[in-house]
Design a protein around this nucleic acid. Structure first.
Lengths: 112, 112
DNA sequence: GACACGTGTAAGAATATTCTTACACCAGAT
DNA sequence: ATCTGGTGTAAGAATATTCTTACACGTGTC
C-alpha cells in the first residue's frame, strides 16, 4: 500500500477514511497488533455497530484488513489489523494522480 | 508543513480537506504556480462561490495560502498557491499523534 | 432453556458537508 | 449611468455521513 501505486480514486478513498477521529484512533490501536472487534469496541469506548461501520470504511480503503477465525471455545472471532500503508502526500504527488480522480458528479461507479 | 510537526487535530483537518475530489484538483492546479480565484473557477469548471468555500477549507488546513493583491488596472485580485506540505502517513505515525486527537464529541473548541 | 459473548445488518434520527442562488461592494471602461 | 470583471458572504436545498437502537444468528456454559 504505497502512495505511488494508487489511483486518484483510491487515494481519495484513503483520505476520506482517514478524515475521522474515531478511525484514526482505530488505526492507532491496531498499529501495535491485531485485535478482535468486540474487545476493540470496549477499549475505544464506542458501540460495536459503530466500530463495525468504521472498520468497513477503513477496510474498503485498504487501511486495515480483517479475518474471521474460530477461537478454541468455538466462537467466531474477527480480528483486524492495520495494513502497512505508507502515503507520501505532496502537492506534486496529488497533481500526478489528478487525472485519475473521479468527476465530482461521479458516484465512483464502474462501467456497470 | 511537515507531518512530523502536526498535532492530531491538525492532521485530521488536513485529511478532511483532502477528502474531496474538487479540493484535490484545486491543489493539483496550484501545484505549478499561483492563480487567482475567478480564473481558477473557470479552469476547473465550478462556480466561484463553491471554489471559494473549498479554498477556505484548504487554507484552514494549511494546504494552500492566499494573498490579496491589486492588479495594475486597480482591481483587487486574490491569488492562491499550494503550500509545500509533505505528509508521510503510516500506522505508526498516526499512533504517535493519536493522543492529541480531539474527542469525537468535541467540536474542536479551545478552552473558550 | 436462559445466559454470556462472539458475529452481522437494517432502519431511521441526528449532523455535517456540499452546492446553488442571490445578494453586496469596488474600480475601470464605454 | 451602465457594463465588465474582480472580490466576499448568507440562506436554504440537496446529499452524505455518523450514530443509535433493535434485530438476527451461532456456540459454550449454568
Amino acid at each position: 500500500m504505497d502512495s505511488e501505486d494508487l489511483t486518484g480514486a483510491q487515494l481519495l478513498a484513503a483520505f476520506a477514511a482517514l478524515a475521522n477521529p474515531h478511525r484514526l484512533r482505530i488505526i492507532a490501536a491496531l498499529a501495535d497488533g491485531r485485535q478482535y472487534v468486540s474487545l476493540l469496541a470496549r477499549q475505544l469506548g464506542m458501540s460495536r455497530p459503530l466500530l463495525h461501520m468504521h472498520l468497513q470504511k477503513l477496510q474498503a480503503a485498504g487501511l486495515v484488513s480483517g479475518e474471521l477465525e474460530l477461537s478454541e471455545d468455538g466462537k467466531a472471532v474477527k480480528y483486524f489489523e492495520a495494513t502497512e500503508f505508507s502515503l507520501h502526500v505532496t502537492p506534486h504527488a496529488i497533481k500526478g494522480l489528478a487525472p485519475t480522480l473521479p468527476e465530482p458528479a461521479d458516484n465512483g461507479k464502474e462501467t456497470d
